[in-house]
Design a protein around this nucleic acid. Structure first.
Length: 259
DNA sequence: ATGACCGTTAATAACGGA
């Protein structure tokens, strides 16, 4: 089974590329982030024509997550139990579903903006709630993974220049400790191989030729439990999908499982 | 070549992204 995660930065803007990529990559299950549309605006019909069902949690301009599957979708849960919310409102940043033999979450962890910003505290609280919500499945025997845009680079090797990010979000000890806490709950980082260069970056800023210069970050992660990790036969970042006009600023992370 | 922000909202910039 081929499972992937991809922050598409608007499914409306990305639809032609998304449909083409689903077919060319042979992806069975896609965890999608930043749909940037409403549930009604989600292109369920176009996906259905390709043989995919979808479960969507999206409310409009920002955020929005989905699971897209051609191996079934059952037991869909929209939202994160215990979500702290931001500015008094819960945002659509998590959805979970069972697709064939595996249960998956698609998550879009809050950005944090700046270390002193209230959004940063929200980010840390949000991950705490995520840990509480997934701990049971993480410790279970069914293949289980939390895939998505974590907005955290796990180590200094996961950014193109650690000095460039000094003092900014995505690399702080507290954020990395939050990831470590998830791992302590029974999840491990399924690190993909890069198709070019040394580091498996998944995001490159649109600006200043970051992609051609490979000034990237690895912030899109696959955290799987033991049964999931044991079944992994390959994992890679499809950087080809970051090329050319109409690309998202994130590339898909693809994982092959022997289940 | 992979190439010097993009997408949404809304109407002219503002905002978020990371």
């Amino acid at each position: 089974m081929r499972i992937a995660t991809w922050n598409v930065n608007s499914i409306t803007a990305r639809l032609p590329r998304l449909l083409a990529w689903l077919e060319s990559s042979g992806t069975d299950v896609l965890c999608l982030q930043e749909a940037k549309t409403t549930a009604e605006g989600f292109p369920a019909e176009q996906l259905r024509e390709l043989g995919y069902e979808c479960a969507v949690h999206a409310t409009g301009r920002w955020n929005g997550v989905a699971v897209i599957s051609r191996v079934g979708i059952e037991d869909v849960v929209r939202g994160l139990p215990g979500d702290p919310g931001y500015d008094g409102a819960e945002e659509p940043r998590a959805i979970s579903a069972t697709c064939g033999p595996a249960r998956v979450w698609s998550v879009y962890v809050p950005n944090g903006r700046e270390v002193e910003h209230s959004h940063y505290a929200y980010k840390l609280e949000w991950i705490e709630a995520l840990k509480a919500a997934v701990a049971g499945d993480a410790a279970g025997s069914r293949p289980f993974a939390v895939l998505g845009d974590y907005n955290i680079a796990p180590t200094d090797d996961d950014v193109w220049d650690p000095a460039f990010f000094e003092g900014s979000t995505h690399v702080t000890p507290a954020e990395r400790a939050a990831l470590a806490s998830l791992r302590e709950a029974g999840l491990s980082d399924v690190v993909p191989r890069p198709l070019k260069y040394e580091q498996p970056f998944t995001y490159w800023d649109y600006r200043q030729l970051c992609f051609p210069k490979n000034r990237g970050m690895r912030i899109d992660l696959v955290y799987g439990n033991e049964a999931f990790a044991k079944a992994v036969s390959d994992a890679y970042v499809d950087r080809e999908e970051r090329k050319g006009k109409g690309a998202s600023d994130h590339a898909p992370v693809v994982v092959d499982l022997e289940i």
